[in-house]
Amino acid sequence: MKHHALEQLQIVAEVDQDYPRRAMSRNERLRRWAELLEQNADRRLATLHQTEYQPATERAAMRSNSSPISVAFEDPVLRAAGLENDSYGEAKRFFELTDHQLHRVICYCHFGATVSAAEAAHQIRKTLSERQRGMFIRLRVMFDR
């Protein structure tokens, strides 16, 4: 697949930026992300350094090439559903995750410089199952945001 800047495409085609996005539920988006990671489970992906200690604005802008988030951003289905880039803040917004939940997937302090795609997928699936647990887990998630 060849990538072009929007300006380049507008020269040769009419680009409709208001094309309706496919609506996906939070769980569908998270499941899709986990499935994408599991397709190449042994792949080593970059982590983000000390996400919990960064000011919110800096944390939101954090990104790394070949991170679990960039795997999601490479997917045309997730981009069509509204994933705008591969930053920490965008992943948090798009996947509706708390800082604590995203920290478990992407932070250096848990895995070192890299994390296996399988482990990142496992952490995402744990987040999916949290929603189905009891009231205390849901309260913790609410207050963690």
Rank of each mutant, 00 (worst) to 15 (best):
88 Y>R: 03
34 A>H: 04
68 P>H: 03
24 M>N: 04
17 Q>V: 12
35 E>A: 15
20 P>H: 03
77 V>W: 02
84 E>N: 10
45 L>W: 05
7 E>A: 15
42 D>M: 12
5 A>V: 13
61 A>G: 06
39 Q>K: 15
114 T>L: 02
19 Y>V: 08
83 L>N: 00
115 V>E: 00
93 R>N: 10
131 R>E: 15
34 A>E: 00
118 A>I: 01
28 E>I: 03
74 E>A: 15
99 D>W: 12
9 L>F: 09
101 Q>A: 07
48 L>S: 05
141 V>K: 11
78 L>R: 01
120 A>C: 08
103 H>M: 09
20 P>M: 03
31 R>F: 07
93 R>Y: 06
137 I>L: 13
134 G>T: 07
10 Q>G: 07
102 L>Y: 03
52 E>S: 12
13 A>L: 12
19 Y>I: 09
62 M>A: 14
120 A>F: 03
143 F>K: 09
44 R>F: 08
61 A>C: 09
10 Q>Y: 10
130 E>V: 01
74 E>D: 15
122 H>I: 04
97 L>Q: 00
108 Y>D: 08
135 M>I: 15
16 D>G: 04
105 V>N: 01
39 Q>R: 14
119 E>Y: 10
22 R>G: 05
144 D>R: 12
144 D>M: 09
80 A>H: 14
27 N>S: 13
134 G>Q: 07
109 C>V: 12
66 S>A: 13
133 R>G: 10
8 Q>F: 09
114 T>D: 02
54 Q>Y: 11
17 Q>E: 12
94 F>Y: 04
44 R>N: 09
71 V>L: 06
29 R>I: 07
36 L>A: 02
108 Y>N: 10
117 A>T: 04
141 V>E: 11
137 I>F: 12
40 N>K: 13
141 V>W: 05
16 D>W: 14
117 A>S: 14
37 L>E: 00
127 T>C: 08
17 Q>T: 13
110 H>A: 03
55 P>D: 01
40 N>S: 09
68 P>W: 01
128 L>T: 03
131 R>Y: 15
140 R>V: 11
25 S>R: 05
121 A>V: 05
9 L>W: 12
35 E>D: 15
17 Q>A: 05
111 F>H: 11
118 A>N: 07
